[in-house]
């Protein structure tokens, strides 16, 4: 996956593009308001993305505890409704806590540094490959890097590419 730009940079770019390249040419009041609402939604997604996974995990773990706590508070209460709550505490309330997701900023930083290391290695390998006595070893080493990159970029394409052809070309 690209780290530069990541999803936030792309969403920010769409918001700016709407502001600078679409809104000035919108003459309908309804369309103008709709574009502004789209910008608002996109900004909301930008704000959700950094915390979304962490909040879901936190809330998941809190809800299982809450189900257990709610059932515990009904100690001594009889009846089908109380039984339903105890059943939920005994089932969903027993789901194991999920681990907190990795810190996104730290992950992006480490990912970028590793990518730059592979990039620098490709440059070094070119020198090794151009020497007759080390060319074969250089080829094998480069192939190890390529074996990492190929499935990665194919997977990226499936996620990033959308249209069947390039928009605006004939």
């Amino acid at each position: 996956m690209n780290t530069q730009p990541g999803p936030d940079g792309l969403l920010e770019g769409v918001i700016i593009g709407l502001e600078q390249e679409v809104l000035p040419f919108v003459s309908s009041e309804k369309a103008y308001a709709t574009v502004a609402m789209m910008q608002s939604i996109l900004q909301a997604v930008r704000q959700m993305l950094p915390v979304y996974d962490a909040y879901l995990v936190d809330e998941h773990n809190s809800m299982t505890a809450t189900l257990r706590n709610a059932a515990a508070a009904l100690d001594g209460v009889a009846g089908p409704e109380a039984d339903h709550i105890r059943d939920r505490a005994a089932t969903l309330g027993q789901l194991p806590d999920l681990p907190a997701p990795a810190d996104r900023e730290a992950l992006i930083d480490a990912h970028t540094r590793l990518g730059r290391a592979l990039e620098a290695s490709i440059l070094d390998l070119d020198t090794i490959q151009r020497q007759p006595d080390t060319a074969d070893a250089g080829d094998r080493s480069l192939m190890a890097i390529r074996a990492h990159l190929a499935p990665r970029v194919v997977r990226d394409t499936a996620v990033i590419s959308v249209s069947a052809g390039m928009i605006g070309r004939g």
Binding site: N2, P5, G9, L10, G13, V14, I16, G17, Q20, E21, M143, R146, A147, L149, A150, P151, V153, V154, D156, T157, I160, S161, V162, S163, M166, I167
Partner: peptide, 26 residues
């Protein structure tokens, strides 16, 4: 904005590079 959009065809080009260069698994 156009330049952000161009990231999409760029990634397609990278795949073509991996195929032409004989990347394992490409």
């Amino acid at each position: 904005f156009l330049h952000l959009y161009l990231l999409q065809p760029s990634i397609t080009t990278l795949v073509a590079f991996t195929q032409l260069l004989g990347y394992p698994g490409a």
